[in-house]
Simulated assay, not measured.
Amino acid sequence: MIAMQEELNQSERSEECELVPRPSNQSVIGTRWVFRNKMDENGIFIRNKARLVAQSFNQEEGIDYEETFAPIARLEAIRMLLAFACFEDFVLYQMNVKNAFLNSFINEKVYVEQPSGFQSFNFPNHVFKLKKTRYGLKQAPKACYKD
């Protein structure tokens, strides 16, 4: 429960979505929790991690989104980059962005359900209108790559 509350608090702080009345002419995507136990390098439990993801399997192309995108680096491109960097004495840095999908703004109107057990007391029938992408959305990779 604490991990789920931390995830919702982080979502509120980063202004990922806003609570709005349920639209009558647009589909609403469900949400679900994904849980993970975080371990240290010795395999000892550190803490629980919860992530709220969109259930995009019910999104329909042409209705809920226009196209999908998968940014994949081919091995040949990476080899070429490394060879060129060595030739020109460039310094390369590796970066792992854990929340890359959660920082990109989306252009479409996307509505998701409030998570089960965490509905607003004052507005239980409202839904979230997303301002930023969320894991599980079909639009997330394209919006992430565009930024």
Rank of each mutant, 00 (worst) to 15 (best):
D64G: 01
R79F: 04
E12G: 02
K132Y: 10
S24W: 02
I78C: 08
D40Y: 11
R13G: 03
N48M: 12
F101V: 04
R79C: 13
S120F: 06
N9K: 12
E61M: 09
T133F: 02
Y111C: 01
P141M: 05
I2G: 08
I78L: 15
Q139P: 08
K132E: 10
N107H: 08
F128C: 09
K142H: 09
C144H: 04
R51I: 04
L75M: 12
I44L: 14
I106H: 04
Q59Y: 00
E18F: 05
L130D: 01
K98G: 07
L19W: 03
L82W: 06
E16G: 06
Q26H: 11
F84S: 13
F84G: 03
G30H: 05
I72F: 05
I46V: 15
Y65H: 07
E66L: 11
G62D: 09
Q119C: 12
Q10K: 13
F69D: 01
A100V: 15
E16C: 12
N48Q: 15
Q139D: 00
S14K: 13
R51S: 13
D147H: 12
A73Q: 09
I72L: 14
N42W: 03
M4G: 02
E113C: 07
N9W: 00
N103S: 10
M80H: 03
V97A: 14
A3L: 08
L102G: 08
G30F: 05
Q26K: 11
R36Q: 15
E12F: 01
L19R: 11
K146Q: 11
R134T: 09
C86G: 10
C86I: 11
R47P: 08
S14A: 09
E12L: 10
Q139N: 05
L130N: 04
V110K: 01
N99K: 09
S27A: 06
L92N: 05
R32W: 02
G43I: 08
K132H: 11
F101Q: 02
M80Y: 02
G136W: 10
E16F: 03
S120W: 06
K142C: 07
T133P: 01
A70C: 12
Y65C: 04
M4N: 13
L8D: 09
I2R: 08
N37Y: 06
I63W: 00
T133W: 03
S11W: 07
R74T: 01
F105W: 04
A50T: 10
E6K: 14
M4P: 01
S14Y: 10
D89F: 13
V91D: 11
L137I: 02
E61Q: 14
N37S: 13
I29V: 14
I29P: 02
K49V: 10
K109L: 05
E67K: 15
E76N: 13
S24H: 11
P71I: 08
N48R: 14
